[in-house]
C-alpha cells in the first residue's frame, strides 16, 4: 500500500469522525431548540462554535494527511 493511499484512508477516517461529531452536535442542537425555542439563538451560537472546533481539528488532520501523503 502506498503512502498516498494511506493518506487517503486517513482523510476518510478524519471525515467520518468529524461527520459523526458534527451530526451529534446538530441533532442535539435541534432537539434543544425544539424544547426551548427561546434559547434557540444561544444554542445556535454554541452549536456553531462546537462544530467549528471539530471542523478545525478535521482540517488539521486532512492537511497533515496531504503533507504526509
Amino acid at each position: 500500500m502506498t503512502m498516498s493511499s494511506l493518506a487517503g484512508i486517513g482523510i476518510g477516517l478524519a471525515v467520518i469522525g468529524a461527520g459523526l461529531g458534527i451530526g451529534k452536535i446538530g441533532s442535539s442542537a435541534v432537539e434543544g431548540m425544539a424544547r426551548q425555542p427561546d434559547a434557540a439563538s444561544q444554542i445556535q451560537t454554541a452549536m456553531i462554535i462546537a462544530a467549528a472546533l471539530i471542523e478545525g481539528a478535521t482540517f488539521f488532520a486532512i492537511i497533515m494527511a496531504f503533507i504526509a501523503g
Partner: peptide, 13 residues
C-alpha cells in the same frame, strides 16, 4: 496560532 490558521483553512477548504 492554529485557531487562526484553521480559520483560513476552513474558508479555503
Amino acid at each position: 496560532l492554529v485557531k487562526h490558521f484553521v480559520l483560513a483553512v476552513r474558508l479555503f477548504a
